[in-house]
Amino acid sequence: MIHLYTDSSPNGFKITIALEELGLPYTLHHVRLDAGEHRQPDFLRLHPHGRIPVLVDEDSDITLFESAAILLYLAEKTGNLLPTEPRARWQAMQWLLFHAASVGPLMGQRVHFEIFSRTRNAEAMERYRRLTNEAFATLDQHLSRHHFLAGDAYSIADIAHFGWTHIARIVDFDFSQYPHLSAWHERVAARPAVRLGVTLPAPATGA
């Protein structure tokens, strides 16, 4: 049995979407970040840095944190959502890592400074708006030539990026000026597993 410890966040939605896409049975454990449950000793034994999501696969006796690692694990476990042809496979992993190293952290900082920060830091807000727009432009250019990030096939790279573009829409980070990225977002958002995944354990709301 797979156990997923998560909350309603962009990184958490990546894994609920993937599990629903793959049709894997799992038990969902709601870790309420706003209640500080990610700082409790039981959770810290799973992830000493106290972040969601965490996946525990009892069948293989594997516990993983970091959403990119979990996505790779689930793709390898099932043989799905990661192309087998080498060029497409590495494209998927490249764009997955572009998200993990660039897009996700940049969006997280922008959300912090524009929504959660108690003080208005104009320099930081301008910096992260500029950097996220540059990342959006990079994705838009790539998607002008490809249906999905790895080419023709939907993959874990698309799931990773969608976790944050879904939140961008909720908090009104406008990327409509990037038509190919916007069209890709709508294609992914229309998938039944995606529609369900972004409601687990609860739908996200703007701050």
Results as ranks from 00 to 15, higher is better:
residue 169 R to V: 03
residue 171 V to I: 15
residue 33 L to M: 12
residue 130 R to S: 14
residue 177 Q to M: 11
residue 119 T to D: 13
residue 191 R to A: 09
residue 175 F to K: 11
residue 102 S to R: 01
residue 70 I to A: 02
residue 127 R to N: 11
residue 183 A to M: 00
residue 119 T to R: 13
residue 175 F to Y: 15
residue 50 G to M: 10
residue 68 A to I: 05
residue 148 F to I: 07
residue 148 F to V: 02
residue 164 W to N: 08
residue 175 F to I: 08
residue 146 H to L: 09
residue 200 L to I: 14
residue 55 L to E: 06
residue 58 E to A: 15
residue 62 I to V: 15
residue 104 G to N: 09
residue 157 A to R: 01
residue 86 P to K: 09
residue 24 L to F: 04
residue 198 V to Y: 06
residue 140 D to P: 14
residue 12 G to C: 08
residue 139 L to Q: 00
residue 73 Y to W: 07
residue 188 V to C: 00
residue 206 G to D: 11
residue 96 L to Y: 02
residue 15 I to M: 07
residue 8 S to F: 00
residue 185 H to M: 06
residue 162 F to M: 07
residue 138 T to W: 00
residue 43 F to N: 06
residue 9 S to A: 11
residue 22 L to F: 09
residue 89 R to C: 10
residue 105 P to A: 05
residue 108 G to D: 10
residue 116 F to W: 14
residue 27 T to R: 13
residue 138 T to P: 03
residue 154 Y to C: 04
residue 152 D to Q: 15
residue 21 E to G: 01
residue 200 L to P: 03
residue 65 F to R: 14
residue 198 V to D: 01
residue 203 P to I: 14
residue 11 N to G: 10
residue 182 S to W: 02
residue 21 E to T: 00
residue 65 F to L: 02
residue 128 Y to V: 04
residue 106 L to T: 15
residue 36 G to W: 10
residue 187 R to T: 06
residue 170 I to W: 01
residue 43 F to W: 05
residue 8 S to P: 00
residue 35 A to D: 12
residue 55 L to S: 02
residue 72 L to K: 07
residue 27 T to F: 04
residue 99 H to Q: 14
residue 83 P to E: 09
residue 57 D to R: 08
residue 42 D to H: 14
residue 170 I to S: 03
residue 19 L to N: 11
residue 93 M to R: 04
residue 48 P to D: 10
residue 48 P to H: 08
residue 96 L to W: 00
residue 17 I to G: 07
residue 111 V to W: 09
residue 136 F to L: 06
residue 114 E to G: 01
residue 110 R to W: 08
residue 92 A to I: 07
residue 108 G to L: 12
residue 156 I to K: 00
residue 18 A to G: 04
residue 1 M to R: 05
residue 65 F to Y: 14
residue 50 G to V: 14
residue 155 S to L: 08
residue 190 A to H: 01
residue 196 L to V: 02
residue 146 H to F: 11
residue 20 E to A: 04
residue 94 Q to N: 09
residue 3 H to D: 15
residue 121 N to R: 02
residue 157 A to E: 07
residue 22 L to P: 12
residue 113 F to C: 00
residue 5 Y to T: 06
residue 194 V to W: 04
